[in-house]
Simulated assay, not measured.
Amino acid sequence: METGAGTSAKASTLRWKILRQALLRKPNADEQSAIGVERITRKTTQGFNLIPSHLVDGSTRSTDATVCYTLPIDSAPKLYVTQRVVDRAKLSDFEICNEYNIDNTGLVCQWPSEEALAYFCLQNADMFRSKRVIELGSGYGLAGLVIAAVTEASEVVISDGNPQVVDYIQRNIDANSKAFGGTKVKAMMLHWNQKDISNISNTFDLIVASDCTFFKEFHNDLAQIVKFLLEKVRPSEAIFFSPKRGDSLDKFLEKVKESSLCFSVRENYDAEIWKRHNQLMNGDGSWPSYEKDHCYPLLVRIML
């Protein structure tokens, strides 16, 4: 007896169906409904809704769209983030992933952990003042842009290992250049296991990253690049926002410990983020597939 996608079909099975359709052709709305996309996908259009945003009128052209973020503090500039909005994966994306040994998640959407990191940086601006900051695995770079716009950091480098993503980061830096004041801001192609890291000519006081610990095959490289950066200037620290995602975060922290680094983990680190989390846990319908383990980012601080 067959089971419907909306009843007892396993989430993993449904995700494979979505992947198959994404590669072969764009599914219509009826097909998506039959698969049960909203029930099992981790992608969300709203996330924690910590920073008000809206789609810029007329900005959707071809595969891109621009989102305007209104930072919830007095006299803060608006930030404009252009991102890809296609619903179907391109085979060329996977070719690039294979060539650079990277994943494709940075192109998928603005992930909620990035928004939580950006909001945390906004609320803790003093932490970044006059500091040199690098964001690892940034995706479209919202957190790095927020740090550059409101914290008076001396320098912000927004990095990713996917060259397609880095192109978007540069476009977003250019679009918001007037918001950065005296802060130097640049995009950087940075693969965590690259042997030649001469392009990291500067030292950094703070490292930030969000949702970078899901893929276990990258854990060792990520821990090693964090150690390398922390060793270049002392005192310094890394601030990671990462959901547990099964045992993936724990496995990463094992690599951190093996690298002779110290870390702390906090669950309740910001009143507003914690409030939004509890609303979602108590049945807020804005994020149908919300689960604490996969969606709520813990605050991990790493240091020598």
Rank of each mutant, 00 (worst) to 15 (best):
T3L: 12
G6T: 06
T7W: 07
T13E: 13
T13F: 14
L19I: 13
L19N: 08
N28E: 12
D30Y: 14
D30P: 00
S33P: 00
A34P: 02
A34G: 00
E38T: 07
E38D: 14
K43G: 04
S53K: 15
L55D: 03
T60D: 02
D64Y: 09
A65N: 09
S75D: 15
A76Y: 04
A76N: 01
A76R: 02
A76M: 06
K78I: 00
R84E: 09
A89E: 12
K90D: 10
L91N: 09
I96A: 08
E99V: 04
N104G: 01
C121S: 13
S138I: 01
S138R: 01
G139M: 11
A143E: 01
A148S: 10
A153E: 08
V166H: 04
D167L: 08
N172A: 05
A175E: 11
G181N: 10
G182I: 08
T183D: 03
L190Q: 08
N193G: 14
Q194G: 04
D196G: 07
N199R: 10
A209E: 02
S210M: 07
K216A: 11
L222H: 01
L230R: 07
V233M: 05
R234M: 04
R234V: 04
R234C: 04
A238T: 02
A238E: 04
F241N: 02
R245H: 09
F252E: 03
K255W: 00
K257Y: 08
R266K: 15
I273L: 11
W274D: 13
Q279C: 10
L280W: 00
E291I: 07
K292Y: 13
L299R: 10
L299S: 00
M303E: 13
